[in-house]
Design a protein around this nucleic acid. Structure first.
Lengths: 219, 219
DNA sequence: GTCTATATACTGATAGAC
DNA sequence: GTCTATCAGTATATAGAC
């Protein structure tokens, strides 16, 4: 016997509305009343389905992180098959961030919204969120770091970690403030354009990873 | 006649406490009662001195952004005197971020705390904060972009804006989550070490700025 | 499962004594 | 300038009718 494929459907409406609101305004700033109103649900129903506001957040993470990290894993495996180290490096970087940015990936509502949610909520330093994020993303991040190390054997692992961290920061910042790119460029670049953002960030990150190490390198 | 050099001193105690709490926990999560308790002030005094919670935030920005951007301006001018374009690029990148990270810069309490505050508060998408940030930092950011463009004349301005944006994101992310570097590296790198962060981020950013443009470049 | 009603606590802001 | 007391609003969470 299988579980019913679609739950009460109110449950998912609540998840959708909460995800949209959290990703736009952060976790603390959104009240459960707003979520109830946006989803057409009753305030009490949210507590019934998720127990608490933290429980709701955890449910959102659980809905997405599985499929997303599975996709990242697949793309990483594909990328690692590439022989040429330069091409492989670029493919790994793409595999690292594409499922975060892409609209079509992930189970519901697109990965971009969930990525924006993660970025915003992480910046809030919400304790529950930080715990979930660490549990869910550290293992796959370490796998990517290993893959990058294999492309760049001459680089100390610490340098790779730093640059991976900067890559995550660049993605996160772009998802939080896309309009800053548009404004700073006077409209020449479009921060909301996911394709453009992906191209730009991959090129910048690949160049950063190829930079020489700190302690070695020419004087 | 000069203004008295030190105000009631309670005013500054409140500013210090608020800055510390906001930078650690964000704006919305910190209540005025917490600030009152941490500063030893009375709840009513905060309203007396700053009018509102938003007024308190604005006072924090006003205390720091003047000196900080003046310092960035000075360092930029110095950097622009360097003849060699490669050395100049690196000096400009340092000038861009050093006053944000450095403990000794800024009037009170160090620039790092204020930078962490900006990063956290910006991620919260607080309306008042976004207005202040845009007013205060856009002009100087544009000056840096112009200086970078002069080092990299072959690069489209849009690419420079993107990479500057990524640089800001990397700095911001590091200030919000320094411990992630430490954890991901298994302790090999220290995310809290400002010197190390500065070195790493400058090297990565310089390499990113030197990457070829998107539309041109060799196939 | 969904609803109303409510318990309990906390929020920012203010009025007025001192 | 600092304090107490308090207002009006909102928060999460829950108990119980339907």
């Amino acid at each position: 016997m299988l579980m019913p494929q679609r739950q009460t459907s109110m449950r998912e409406a609540i998840l959708d509305a909460a995800e949209e609101l959290f990703s736009k305004n952060g976790f603390r700033a959104v009240s459960m009343r707003e979520i109830a109103q946006a989803s057409g649900a009753n305030l009490g129903s949210i507590s019934y389905h998720f127990g608490s506001k933290d429980g709701l957040l955890r449910a959102i993470y659980e809905r997405h992180s599985g499929p997303m990290n599975r996709r990242r894993s697949e793309l990483l495996t594909e990328a690692q098959r590439i022989r040429d180290p330069d091409d492989r490096l670029e493919a790994i970087v793409r595999a690292f961030i594409l499922p975060s940015l892409s609209q079509s990936e992930g189970s519901v509502g697109g990965g971009a919204r969930f990525a924006r949610l993660r970025a915003v909520v992480m910046a809030e330093r919400h304790e529950e969120a930080q715990k979930i994020i660490a549990e869910t993303f550290n293992p796959i991040n370490l796998a990517f770091i290993d893959a990058l190390q294999a492309c760049l054997p001459q680089l100390p692992r610490a340098d790779i970690v730093w640059r991976t961290h900067f890559l995550l920061g660049a993605v996160s910042y772009t998802l939080i403030n896309p309009w800053r790119v548009t404004r700073l460029s006077g409209g020449e670049a479009d921060g909301e354009n996911t394709e453009e953002a992906l191209t730009q960030i991959v090129r910048a990150a690949v160049a950063a990873f190829r930079a020489p190490a700190g302690s070695d390198a020419a004087p």
